[in-house]
Computed example of a mutant assay.
Amino acid sequence: MCLGIPGQVVDIVDAEQSLATVAVNGVRRTISVRLLADDNLQVGDWVLVHVGFAMAKIDEHEATLTLDQVQKMGADYTAEIEAFNSSEIA
């Protein structure tokens, strides 16, 4: 199963290359935010992350609700967190 998990942007690493660091479940990774180039991402924004790519910008309320739901999925959530942990772009 492929899930997108909420992550909060904690640093814009390289705006020219569309790279940002996000925090997911206490883990920080540099990911591509190229798909959201028109969304004017800022530190503090929330994004939906899948295997090293930000797929959508979401608000904090949606991030909280989504995290609550995916954590209830057990093994699928654990597998997605493991994929995130191994997906660093830079």
Results as ranks from 00 to 15, higher is better:
residue 1 M to W: 06
residue 2 C to F: 02
residue 2 C to P: 02
residue 3 L to K: 08
residue 3 L to I: 07
residue 4 G to T: 05
residue 5 I to Q: 08
residue 6 P to N: 01
residue 6 P to Y: 05
residue 8 Q to K: 14
residue 9 V to M: 09
residue 12 I to T: 11
residue 14 D to F: 02
residue 14 D to G: 14
residue 16 E to G: 13
residue 16 E to Q: 09
residue 17 Q to D: 09
residue 18 S to E: 13
residue 19 L to T: 05
residue 19 L to M: 12
residue 20 A to M: 13
residue 21 T to Y: 03
residue 22 V to S: 05
residue 22 V to Q: 04
residue 25 N to E: 13
residue 25 N to L: 01
residue 26 G to F: 09
residue 26 G to T: 09
residue 28 R to W: 02
residue 28 R to T: 12
residue 29 R to I: 04
residue 30 T to Q: 14
residue 32 S to H: 06
residue 34 R to W: 02
residue 37 A to H: 08
residue 37 A to S: 04
residue 38 D to A: 14
residue 38 D to Q: 14
residue 39 D to W: 01
residue 40 N to T: 02
residue 43 V to P: 06
residue 44 G to V: 07
residue 44 G to S: 11
residue 44 G to H: 11
residue 46 W to Q: 12
residue 47 V to C: 07
residue 47 V to W: 05
residue 47 V to K: 07
residue 48 L to E: 15
residue 48 L to W: 11
residue 48 L to P: 15
residue 49 V to D: 07
residue 50 H to E: 05
residue 50 H to Q: 06
residue 52 G to C: 04
residue 52 G to F: 10
residue 53 F to C: 10
residue 54 A to H: 05
residue 55 M to R: 01
residue 56 A to H: 06
residue 57 K to Y: 02
residue 57 K to R: 11
residue 57 K to Q: 11
residue 61 H to M: 12
residue 62 E to A: 15
residue 62 E to F: 08
residue 63 A to C: 04
residue 63 A to E: 01
residue 67 L to A: 12
residue 69 Q to G: 05
residue 72 K to F: 03
residue 72 K to D: 03
residue 74 G to C: 06
residue 74 G to K: 10
residue 74 G to V: 08
residue 76 D to E: 09
residue 77 Y to C: 14
residue 78 T to M: 14
residue 79 A to F: 01
residue 80 E to I: 03
residue 82 E to Q: 05
residue 83 A to T: 05
residue 85 N to P: 01
residue 87 S to P: 01
residue 88 E to M: 12
residue 89 I to E: 13
